[in-house]
């Protein structure tokens, strides 16, 4: 016996036209399997009707919006919509170069000098020195929010009064006492995770810049890996952009990103 599965959904919805409904009802009169299924489908439909909508976390779109802004500002010709007049970009580049001398004085001596939250982190920071590539993962018992990540980027460019791993309550979400420290992530896994999360899906291009710091912490409660990258404008110019990329350490998905420019 063939069963009119494709009609049963609309029959349960009460949306069949008269002729089709009569066909289905004739079939139901002789098919117990379909009668059972119709009863089950009605019960399921009623159960789903009472499922409420769940409020979405407010920061879900932050990464995409940050990326849209980043593309609009830094890669107007490569995927981001053209919107800035040419003079704007040239003015920005000129300002960046002009600021570079200041950055030399401010940025490099500060990179890695801030207090870390573990001995390993402190050792790593001390070993790193100024703008040397990261070689280990710092573990921080810190729950960052977007402001905290922005503060990390800002402090990495050498802004007065801001330091890595700050306990400033205005920029970090306090860690709940019940938070279980995650298993330590190896440096290679952390870098792979950042690469996986932030590789450009079209260009297959890994994150730009020199990775100078890798931090294992949390972002809005989600176990996360934070990568601090220093970007050079090229042609021997000094670094003037610090970018912080944050990926979930569980699924290697983008959580957020931000950057600070001197």
């Amino acid at each position: 016996m063939s069963h009119p599965d494709a009609l049963l959904a609309e029959y349960v919805d009460g949306a069949l036209a008269e002729g089709e409904r009569a066909v289905v009802e004739r079939h139901l009169g002789s098919c117990e399997r379909c009668r059972d299924e119709v009863a089950l489908a009605r019960a399921a439909r009623a159960a789903l009707a009472s499922v409420p909508e769940t409020p979405a976390p407010s920061d879900l779109s932050a990464a995409a919006i940050a990326e849209a802004r980043r593309r609009a500002e830094s890669h107007p010709a490569a995927g981001a919509p053209p919107g800035r007049p040419a003079w704007y970009r040239w003015a920005g580049a000129a300002a960046g170069i002009a600021a570079a001398l200041l950055v030399v004085a401010l940025v490099l001596p500060h990179v890695g000098n801030a207090p870390a939250t573990t001995k390993a982190a402190g050792d790593a920071a001390a070993a790193r020195g100024a703008a040397s590539p990261a070689t280990s993962v710092e573990t921080q018992n810190v729950n960052y929010d977007l402001a905290g990540v922005e503060s990390l980027a800002t402090s990495s460019r050498g802004q007065e009064g801001a330091v890595f791993g700050s306990n400033d309550q205005a920029t970090q979400v306090p860690v709940a006492a019940s938070v279980t420290p995650e298993k330590r992530i190896s440096f290679a896994d952390a870098v792979t995770c950042l690469d996986r999360a932030f590789t450009d899906p079209t260009g297959q291009q890994a994150p730009e810049g020199q990775l100078v710091r890798v931090i294992q912490a949390r972002y809005r409660g989600v176990p996360a890996v934070l990568g601090v990258y220093l970007l050079c404008p090229g042609a021997g110019q000094p670094t003037n952009i610090v970018r912080v990329l944050v990926a979930s350490s569980g699924g290697c998905s983008i959580l957020t990103s931000t950057q600070a420019t001197a």
């Binding site: 009609l7 959904a9 349960v12 009668r35 089950l40 489908a41 439909r45 159960a47």
Partner: peptide, 20 residues
């Protein structure tokens, strides 16, 4: 339509509902 119907039936069974 077929998937929706089959999905509803599967859901009801997963909920432990039995046909009357």
């Amino acid at each position: 339509k077929s998937r929706v119907h089959r999905g509803r039936v599967a859901l009801a069974r997963a909920m432990g509902i039995t046909s009357r």
